[in-house]
Amino acid sequence: MSPAAVKVDRLEKTLGKNKVLRGISMEAASGEIFGLLGPNGAGKTTTLRIVCTLLAPDAGSVQVLGFDTMSAPEEVRRRVGVVTADIGVYPRLSARENISYFAELSGVADGELKGRVDAVLNRLDMTSFANQRAESLSSGQRQKVAIARAIVHDPAVLMFDEPTSNLDVLASREIRNFMVESRGRGKCVIFSTHVLHDAERLCDRVTILHEGSVVATGPTAEVRGAHRDLEDAFLELVEKR
């Protein structure tokens, strides 16, 4: 395995009265799709939010490409792109304007801006609706805008948090293809999902969370073991606890 691009060490977090994370550790490397799996409420989103500096851990630490999320949050954000199921875009801006805005805020230089945005529009096959206002786009097109704005600054780490949960079959397949393509470009792709079937097809390695703790981690085939699929493996792991 390559050196860890994202290193999570004994992470703990309480939200309100709920202890959401109970000492989670994991490592994800560049050039792999790393699955963060578990049922709803397992702590996947909270983990990702701490990794991308939106939340601060109560205990433990996170390093992204050598930068600590607490001491160098802005450096971490420069290197991370996040795609979530909530496809929030600015409805009165066009697809191109949405992407340009995030590129500028992410520090893409003026001279590079147009080229970078055009490249992303081409890569995601968005040129036909690039100048349409986001309010008139379909959910699949909006999801592409969300992906485009997350990758326009060319981050080394890409995190997908349940990215296909609101999408149809075709749009979901495009997202999966994009993750595979990003792995081929040497990116560290973290894929958080409760759909174990998707994870099994895509992920090189997985960590399974349950009630804020890691119940299994390792290469996908290893975690599945002798079970028919990851779902059976997961159910047995949970029942043991």
Partner: peptide
């Protein structure tokens, strides 16, 4: 409301 806040706060801009 339109769920853009998280993406906005994810940018390195203070």
């Amino acid at each position: 409301e339109r769920k853009t806040l998280e993406s906005l706060l994810l940018t390195p801009t203070p």
